[in-house]
Amino acid sequence: MTGRRLEIDGISKTYGTTTALRGLTFDVRAGELFGFVGSNGAGKTTAMRIVLGVLAADSGAVRWDGAPITLETRRRIGYMPEERGLYPRMKVGEQLTYLARLHGLNAAAARRAAQEWTERLGVAARRDDEVQKLSLGNQQRVQLAAALVHDPEILVLDEPFSGLDPVAVDVMSDVLREKAAQGVPVVFSSHQLDLVQRLCDRVGIIRDGALVACGGVDELRAGGAVRLVVDAPQAPPDWADVLPGVRALAREGTRTELELADGADDQAVLRAALATGPVHEFARRRPSLTELFRSAVTEEAAR
């Protein structure tokens, strides 16, 4: 699968007077974990449903390996919806075997795959239980098994970590890393931005149906506003308020976190801190993905 990629090219979607997607464009490369993040209602689920063919785009295209997505291509996608997509009264093992058969596996291969993934995801002991009798966390594990049971070439996962305990999060993270290492493009949405920051190679932030940022996690964080942490024990609480282009974000004990506007002089900040007495710490701090996301949401609300 070297070189293959999933392309979302200029897709738009309108429901009546509501525009859900506005020329959305990004790609997910072979062997890449791509985090797709945004507020509720930003358009993440609509985009994923268009990739799967559950919805039709008003314009734009979705391509795999340079060619339009077809029904045959979709059989090779592993999809995990945010809402439960399982038959509640069907037993776990029977359900996974059935879904694997729908994707083209023969009976023996389907049974082996169902056994393998229930063991890997920690629900082997529940194979003979109805899905509705499982905890929400175990249902989520089975939902992931359903996305993986046919050995997909592409993974599209909508909030896969929702409702999982920390142990299950670790198991699922390992599985996604493993699939990416095998060359599978993996795109998933999540509101757990610390997890996205830790796992993903690249991240796309969607706001109001359009992509407002896309790139490597380190690249996005480096491109955020400059932040400084200054520990000046003798400085008054408002010592930095008079500095041009400098905004105090937080103060904890003797440490102050500052944000610098474009063109603001960090050396002027250091001189001002030293003028109050000793400085025990003066360091740049890159914003987290959560802070970058919050900034994007704030910009949306301000419009």
Rank of each mutant, 00 (worst) to 15 (best):
A180Q: 09
R294F: 05
R120S: 11
F293N: 01
G122D: 03
L102C: 14
M90T: 03
A168I: 10
N106V: 12
A114M: 06
W239R: 02
V212H: 01
D58T: 03
M90C: 09
P185D: 07
E130I: 06
Y87S: 00
L148K: 01
D241F: 07
G245Q: 01
A113M: 05
H103P: 01
L289P: 02
D262K: 07
L21H: 00
G60P: 12
L249H: 00
A180P: 09
L33Y: 08
L199G: 02
Q139H: 06
T97M: 04
L199I: 08
I11V: 13
E300L: 14
P287E: 04
D170P: 10
H150P: 06
S59I: 10
F26E: 12
R5G: 08
R75K: 15
L55E: 14
L144A: 13
A240V: 00
L164V: 14
N138L: 03
R74W: 08
E116R: 15
I50V: 11
P244H: 06
A145C: 09
G3D: 07
A107Q: 14
A67L: 14
S39I: 08
V242D: 14
R22H: 14
G43V: 08
I77D: 10
E32W: 08
C200F: 01
N40E: 09
A107I: 04
Q95T: 09
V187G: 02
G78K: 03
G122I: 01
